[in-house]
Amino acid sequence: MGFGQFLTEPEFKFIIVTHRDIFQNTAQESSRFSEQYAELSSVIRLDKDDMKKIGVKAGDSVIVKNASGRVVLKAESSILEQPHPGTAFMINGPWANALVAADTGGTGVPAFKNIEAVLSRSKEEKVTSLDELV
């Protein structure tokens, strides 16, 4: 590896949009603590070209953070036809919520579907578990 390993991983800015997923919802109805619920909720889907740019492959861990929180997620490539550079998608749940700001500008409505965060590669870290979140 040499010199590179001492450098911090470069960070990339993203907007994260959350959405629902019936398979995650079904798992949740069965148990909030099911493996499937955790697996589906902790995935971040990225534009294919963005993945190349960052240097992550499907299944790699990535660190996603902002002033509200920090989570380790599993990166997967987008299932959308259209490219969406700079935008990433997550199924709504505690992992995405960890990145949602408490500050609502006094409206009482957080920005659940428009989350600004930075993403970087993770060398060894495991995906954040539900227990670590709350």
């Binding site: 148990s31 909030r32 603590f33 509200s68 929180g69 749940g93 505690p94 919520n97 960890a98 990145l99 949602v100 700001a101 408490a102 957080p110 659940f112 539900l130 979140l133 709350v134």
Partner: peptide, 29 residues
């Protein structure tokens, strides 16, 4: 309802610190 799962993380952490009573058919966060 499961606010610790559905609220923003920083808010959920604050909520977890006060005495809570949950009425629900199922266990949740």
């Amino acid at each position: 309802s499961d606010p610790l799962a559905s609220l923003p993380g920083p808010i959920a952490k604050k909520l977890a610190k006060i005495p809570l009573i949950t009425i629900d058919p199922c266990e949740n966060l």
